[in-house]
Design a protein around this nucleic acid. Structure first.
Lengths: 197, 197
DNA sequence: CTTTATTTTCAGTTTTGACTGAAAATTCGG
DNA sequence: CCGAATTTTCAGTCAAAACTGAAAATAAAG
């Protein structure tokens, strides 16, 4: 592995964490190298820096492209494909969350919806279905909220995150000062907060 | 596998998704059975329901305990260990997020902090460090916000999630009406919102 | 259309992780 | 303590995934 020590430490960490993140070591390392690099790299650059086979790099890049985590750049007068990660780390997080949701949550939502349609044939199934309903509601709430957040510009999102729980204070303030202005009624409407707590 | 069809479908799905979630098939299936069950189950119940070896169940339960995802229950007059998942699905999500953060994010934060302390030895390392700084800041912001959320009671948390982006509207309203009351100043203080959009 | 640079695919190999049965350890009732 | 019930550990086996080198496919240049 031919990398400056600092970068190498970063890359090795991403490789090790890869397994916990559901990607393999090489994919994690490729991503780390691209992320830390100050210029686009081609497949052979990665082979040299990581010391893995050319075909392994090819597969890794393909996987990262499937995740939308790398961008293809073309250097004029060079036939090779060069790759980068987006400059904006927020864009990266958005993609990451989006893709993980698609792979790790959406299929479960679909499955739950299907099973909740079926008529339970016993008390055991009735109870199981009640549990699934709880799970389904929770995931729907979370993904709905996520869809809202995904729509925000980064600046507003950062503002919201920075506020943290202070938002709750603001909500309490709002509740104390105003009656809910009649927005389009949703199933789960905001309950008026108790004055203190 | 001896399970009612509806439960079986649920369990098989969890088994298949297991690999995407970073747990193995059996662990996913054990969790699903416990989650859907209307009573605590012992290891042998799981062996019967899932048709896997006793030792596999033992290891699976150990892993779920390490994740704090199952609770040990003792039935009076029975020496065996019985297991359940928490009734409250929100409690489950809290644990899940907490544990995933501990395993998948905290180690990276630590690594980044260490590498950011080192003096860069080249322009390449300087650039890599700048990228790491971006990543570090972003993760700090997200985990800080998460810590805030984790502290909220479930009711307030649900309220917040239900509001979604409507919170932004409330913030804009607040910004228009008041000057920030002088809270303890944090590095990233809320910027006053532009009047519209 | 041919040549050459580059990327992709794939069969075979290696590595890693899951699973099992048997043996060891633990725990509780007597 | 002893012995039965139960759980855990672990060495060996099996299955899945990662990785490689070589061959095939692709794409641009001449």
């Amino acid at each position: 592995m031919t990398l400056p020590p600092l970068v190498q430490a970063f890359v090795l960490h991403f490789g090790e964490m890869g397994s916990r993140w559901g990607i393999n070591r090489t994919v994690g390392q490729i991503y780390a190298v691209l992320f830390a690099s100050d210029r686009p790299l081609c497949a052979d650059d990665l082979v040299e820096r990581l010391g893995v086979s050319r075909s392994n790099v090819s597969m890794g890049l393909k996987e990262l492209q499937a995740w939308n985590l790398v961008r293809l750049k073309h250097v004029p007068g060079d036939r090779r494909d060069f790759f980068t990660t987006p400059e904006d780390v927020w864009a990266i997080v958005r993609t990451l969350v989006e893709e993980r949701k698609k792979r790790e949550i959406d299929p479960t939502l679909t499955m739950l919806r299907e099973l909740l349609m079926q008529a339970p044939a016993s008390d055991e199934e009735r109870h199981a279905q009640a549990r699934m309903r709880d799970m389904h509601e929770l995931i729907e709430l979370l993904t709905g909220w996520y869809a809202d957040m995904q729509r925000l510009e980064t600046e507003r999102l950062v503002q919201l995150l920075t506020l943290g729980t202070k938002v709750v204070k603001v909500l309490e303030m709002k509740d104390r000062l105003f009656v809910m202005p009649g927005g389009r009624a949703k199933k789960t409407e905001t309950r008026t907060a108790k004055p203190e707590a």
